[in-house]
Amino acid sequence: MATAVRLAASIPADNRDMLEQFPELYSTLRHIARRERRRNPSDTMNTTVVVNEAWLKLKHSSMQWQDEQHYLATAALAMRQLLVDYARRSAATKRTRVDDCPLFNNDCELNKTSSSILALDQALQQLEQLEPRLTRLVELRFFAGLTLPESARCLGISPRTANREWSRARAFIQTAMQS
């Protein structure tokens, strides 16, 4: 919690336009991601590029972002949301159980991916209750594709602390996803 307070402290109070930022950001991220997929259907997708492009686009939009760090924290959450929504949708369309998958079946890969993302989301929800900052760290690093030092800067903690917390978060998530 301390992090968010510190993070929030850098933002001037009563900026009304900020309130609508999340949906807009979500929408922008999705737009860019889908465009990327259409452009390079056979390639993998660089989510960091997506996040950065959204920043460039939004920086000059009517919405005022206080700073890039605030943007990144929100974008990481939006990215998590975006992928969870996609995973949920694909889980809803294809309900084949992972174990039933024959080899080399793309649908099964997809199902594994979506169930992994959904399981991760659930583990993050558990972690949120215990240590919210670790959740933020995972979002920044995994979903927004930031490096560890970048994530540390965004959260206002030392790289050493970030490193220790990353180990802890990773071990927790691994444990929670196995159970």
Partner: peptide
């Protein structure tokens, strides 16, 4: 979990997964 040599989800990049999903 910390010591395990298995591939952890968090150690992968999101890129392939995002491509799959989207």
């Amino acid at each position: 979990a910390h010591d395990s040599s298995d591939t952890r989800l968090l150690d992968q990049t999101l890129n392939q997964m995002a491509a799959d999903l989207i």
